[in-house]
Design a protein around this nucleic acid. Structure first.
Lengths: 96, 96
DNA sequence: TAGATAATTAGATAAATATCTAAATATCTA
DNA sequence: TAGATATTTAGATATTTATCTAATTATCTA
């Protein structure tokens, strides 16, 4: 049984953060690029990026003045597996 | 692109609620049966069940004095599809 | 119908969180 | 090195949320 940290689910519970993940699924972006997509201050977006990073959902890399964020596909795959485990019924009476 | 309501992710953000879902993946249970699995008052569990139900993650049916809860597998499958969409890169430069 | 059992609702409270402004840090370039 | 740009950190605040106790609702059965 796969284990996913609580912080991962907490990170996913905010619509802004899920939108950030969607953006990153199309390609890596700098913090500024990401912030420009939202009607929110840069510190607020930075806060969300920090939560996503702490959860391991995104990775960061400084490139000059910019910090480039990318989606951590490995964790996304683990999450899919975690949900997929619900589709395997492990009760006795249901076994054919 | 599949859409999952914000309440679904909020419901998943609590460890007690995820544990309830795990329990229900093995088979339907009454509210009391569920409450007995936790070191928490019945009203607190009832609160969590209400949030899971409002999110559509669980279904309920009264059977005499008991209310039987079950996992809504259809929504679980939709969630899997939602995460799976992240694994399809839709950027131009990455296309082979 | 009275009492017992199962479950929820109401109301209170402490903790967590999303957001903002202001300040700090890091990097580049003229 | 001074100024500009990119980003984060600090600190404050309003809102949300998880939990509890007490009260209410629904059902069964003697």
């Amino acid at each position: 049984m796969i284990f996913i940290q609580n912080e991962v689910f907490k990170a996913l519970a905010d619509p802004t953060r899920r939108q950030i993940l969607k953006l990153l699924s199309s390609g890596d972006m700098s913090a500024g690029d990401i912030a420009r997509c939202f009607d929110m201050t840069k510190p607020s977006i930075s806060h969300h990026l920090g939560i996503l990073k702490a959860a391991g959902l995104i990775l960061d890399e400084r490139r000059g003045q910019n910090i480039i964020y990318s989606l951590n596909m490995t964790l996304v795959q683990d999450i899919i597996r975690w949900f997929f485990d619900f589709t395997k019924n492990d009760s006795e009476e249901e076994r054919s």
